[in-house]
């Protein structure tokens, strides 16, 4: 993609976003839609100046849940995949267990986590973790396994060690897969943290949404949804930037 072409794409995408907001504005004003059903974009922005909603604190709490759970999932997931590829025995025994665990709707674990870890940041981060963990394990394990047999022969003909195969071929070869898992997991982690807050919490943007639902402050709910999305977008963008830095273009898996 040339510089001119990407500028054109970015420009067009920005314009489309503005158009959607404009359509939203026109719909609410021209249609005389009541504010508690759908606020105008401007009403939504004004919700931010309500001090009793403690936006900043709530953003920080939700961000900590999402990013904490996510980092734990990436670290733990990659580690678990490494262990599985190092030991055929562990792989054969525990990969099926993991797949069974993956069948559990993670949201159903919420009430349990609350019993075990009480209300607050920790159980919500754990729900985010439990949702984001599996795609990372699965994609990483798959990436580590994808090695050309002939390439292995080449290394073995020089009596290369298992460790050399791992650091020179398997791990760099798995990076694109790890990133594709990380992208999927980023979106899941956000959903996990918010569901956790819905189930039980006393802080965070999800908690705030439940509070303002009672008073029908729909504008604040809109704002909370937008902020939650932005937290997700930020995470996703960071992953993509990291991927650009680490993975050669042609090797990327979309």
């Amino acid at each position: 993609m040339t510089a001119g072409e990407s500028a054109w794409r970015i420009g067009l995408a920005t314009l489309a976003h503005v158009a959607v907001i404009l359509a939203w504005h026109l719909f609410t004003t021209l249609g005389n839609v009541p504010k508690f059903v759908m606020p105008t974009p401007w009403d939504t922005v004004l919700a931010l100046i309500q001090p009793e909603y403690r936006w900043w604190d709530n953003i920080l709490v939700t961000a900590a849940e999402i990013y904490g759970g996510y980092l734990l999932a990436v670290g733990g997931g990659v580690l678990a995949a490494l262990v599985f590829t190092w030991s055929r025995w562990l792989d054969a025994a525990f990969m099926p267990v993991l797949v069974s665990f993956n069948m559990i709707p993670k949201v159903a674990l919420g009430p349990l986590f609350i019993v075990w870890f009480s209300y607050g940041l920790l159980p919500n981060a754990l729900i985010a973790f439990s949702i984001a963990f599996f795609p990372i394990v699965l994609t990483t394990a798959r990436g580590l396994r994808e090695v050309e047999p002939d390439l292995l022969d080449l290394v073995r003909s020089l009596r290369g060690s298992k460790w050399q195969i791992f650091v020179k071929i398997q791990l760099p070869g798995a990076l694109p897969y790890i990133f594709s898992g990380m992208k999927v997991a980023a979106i899941l982690a956000v959903a996990g943290a918010i569901v956790g807050e819905f189930l039980g919490s006393d802080k965070g943007l999800g908690y705030l949404m439940l509070q303002v639902q009672v008073t029908l402050d729909t504008a604040a709910m809109f704002m909370a949804v937008i902020l939650i999305s932005l937290l997700g977008v930020l995470l996703y963008a960071l992953v993509i930037v990291l991927e650009r830095l680490v993975v050669v273009r042609d090797a990327r898996v979309s």
């Binding site: 002939d150 080449l154 290394v155 020179k168 070869g173 042609d250």
Partner: peptide
């Protein structure tokens, strides 16, 4: 343990390495 060179039907280059670094692989091993 070191006097064999191999070439296959597929080049099997490491996508993430530059050409020079690809050629270096056996020397590294």
């Amino acid at each position: 343990s070191r006097d064999i060179g191999m070439v296959f039907q597929q080049a099997l280059l490491l996508k993430w390495r530059r050409i020079l670094d690809n050629v270096m692989l056996p020397a590294e091993i």
